[in-house]
């Protein structure tokens, strides 16, 4: 039983950042802007917020500090993503190139600034992790559920699920959501009905920047004792989750859980007697999510749910 609790707790380390960042990607792509800058945005969000955590250490700790760090991460991501929005919406640049530029810029910037602002001039930013909740008071004593979801957790896990619910609501139940989806499918039609496509697309990219930045912080906190200007390719993995999830919130959750769980098994099986005794190499588990993505894409490519206008700069003259 303990193994089950352990696997669920570990799965969250993979799933929550992937979920948050993929949802971010969803907002951008459904508004019609391809955002492959997620990796760079994560890096920037993680960078400023970890720096914030480091500089407020000593007179602040725990959940309040975490919440403030999340705000810092979100704001950074939003600001950073506006570069992408400007290039791809106003300047009508190739969105892949603009995204790649941000991805290349982010780690270099993080290393440079970390060296400038830290007293010891190193690129790694050490931080103290005071954020893990060993037991949520009250809730953790519920049998089964308590150990599964309310022990050894981070506040960010709940925030991740909250973001999921809010995202689904915004996308499907609000006027803004409808307009966003319209701009991603047929911006000319949306424009003809008086919707400001540029504004909507800006909002889409900025939301993705905010979530991407938060995702970066959520990713790095539980897995290291310092931040070294990288999120190890999880921004790109989030894109895979987004595609596997067919640009829909509920499916994205399924995809993130699936990727997270398979990665957890691949990493943890050597410490679980039942799985270790089967002697299946970890490569197998690591391959499964990608093979599954390929299979799903093969079978769904004909009726792919990708937003039709995604990646195409909106040009009023095309109407």
């Amino acid at each position: 039983m303990n193994t089950v609790y352990f696997l669920v707790q570990q799965t969250m380390l993979f799933t929550i950042p992937l979920l948050i960042v993929a949802l971010g990607g969803m907002f951008s792509e459904r508004s019609g802007v391809v955002n492959i800058a997620l990796e760079g945005i994560m890096t920037m969000g993680a960078f400023t917020s970890i720096l914030f955590v480091k500089f407020t250490e000593g007179f602040m700790s725990g959940q309040l500090q975490l919440l403030l760090a999340i705000i810092v991460a979100g704001a950074t991501g939003m600001l950073f993503s506006m570069l992408h929005a400007f290039a791809s919406i106003n300047m009508k640049a190739d969105q892949t190139i603009s995204g790649t530029a941000l991805n290349m810029f982010a780690p270099a910037f993080a290393i440079f600034v970390a060296r400038q602002v830290q007293a010891n001039h190193v690129q790694q930013i050490d931080f103290e992790n005071t954020f893990r909740i060993v037991k949520v008071p009250g809730l953790s004593s519920i049998p089964f559920i308590g150990k599964l979801f309310f022990s050894n957790v981070y506040l960010t896990t709940y925030i991740g699920f909250a973001i999921l619910i809010i995202s689904a609501f915004v996308l499907y139940k609000t006027r803004f959501g409808l307009r966003l989806r319209a701009c991603g499918e047929h911006p000319q039609a949306a424009d003809s009905l008086g919707i400001n496509v540029y504004k909507i697309r800006y909002s889409g990219v900025m939301i993705s920047g905010m979530l991407g930045g938060i995702g970066g912080l959520v990713f790095i906190l539980p897995i290291s004792t310092n931040f070294n200007a990288t999120v190890s390719g999880y921004g790109f993995l989030a894109l895979a989750v987004l595609i596997f999830g067919q640009w829909k919130p509920a499916r994205i959750l399924t995809a993130a859980l699936f990727f997270g769980f398979m990665n957890t098994i691949a990493a943890a099986y050597s410490g679980i007697p039942f799985l270790a005794s089967m002697h299946i190499p970890s490569y197998f588990y690591k391959m499964v999510p990608y093979i599954a993505t390929l299979i799903v894409l093969t079978f769904t490519s004909k009726k792919s749910q990708a937003p039709k206008a995604s990646g195409i700069p909106y040009d009023k003259g095309m109407r």
Partner: peptide, 8 residues
């Protein structure tokens, strides 16, 4: 650093 290493 990687969550896979933390998990393992």
């Amino acid at each position: 650093a990687d969550p896979a290493i933390e998990t393992m």
